Amino acid sequence: MAPKKSLEGIANPLALDQQVCFGLAVAARSVIALYKPLLEPLGLTHPKYLVMLALWEHEPLRVSELSRLVHLDPGTLSPLLKRLEAIGYVRRERDPHDERALAVSLTAKGRALRDDAEAIPPAIVERLGMDIDELLDLHRRLTEVIAAATPEG
């Protein structure tokens, strides 16, 4: 049976605390704030951390691939990559298979940073105080929300 798609039974569908966008926005800001003190000693902001995660898993990546993975448009990603390159974590070069594309790879310093970053996920799980199965289920549900809200194409 398909889930109910009605607001029937909700007394005030315009109440702030009933808005999905409000809950997601507050949760996102709150969780990202937990990362800040863990990332600062590494010279990373949260968006830079997402880029590094993608590169640790998939490097090298074209900027277009990286943009898709981290859900940041190339215009936002470009200055971020310049800053990561300036601190010595990544290298941007023309893709040898397509001179029109820019490829991003890790430097030795960027690869070594991964060892320090491995302490971040357990610290976040501990700080949230939630069971890992609950967090994995939340991640799965959020992935469904992202898929439903993302325009095709």
Rank of each mutant, 00 (worst) to 15 (best):
A108R: 14
A117C: 04
A117L: 06
G23S: 07
I120K: 04
L61G: 00
L61Y: 00
Q19S: 09
A54Q: 02
K82E: 14
P47Y: 08
M1T: 10
R94Q: 15
E65W: 01
P74T: 12
T76K: 14
G129W: 01
K109R: 15
A11W: 08
M1C: 08
A149S: 12
D137Y: 11
P79R: 03
P122Q: 04
I10E: 09
L24A: 10
R114E: 11
H58C: 07
T150E: 06
S30V: 05
A103V: 10
A112H: 08
G23N: 08
D73F: 05
I146W: 11
N12L: 07
L61C: 01
L38R: 01
A147N: 08
A33T: 06
D116G: 13
V20I: 13
F22C: 08
R94P: 04
V145Y: 06
E144Y: 11
G75F: 05
L16A: 14
E118C: 06
H71Q: 15
L7K: 14
M130R: 15
V51G: 00
V90G: 02
L55V: 04
A54R: 00
K48W: 04
Q18F: 11
R29Q: 13
L135R: 01
G88E: 03
L80A: 04
E99M: 12
L138K: 04
A101S: 14
D73A: 07
G129P: 00
P41Y: 05
L38P: 00
R62K: 12
A117N: 02
D137W: 12
L42N: 08
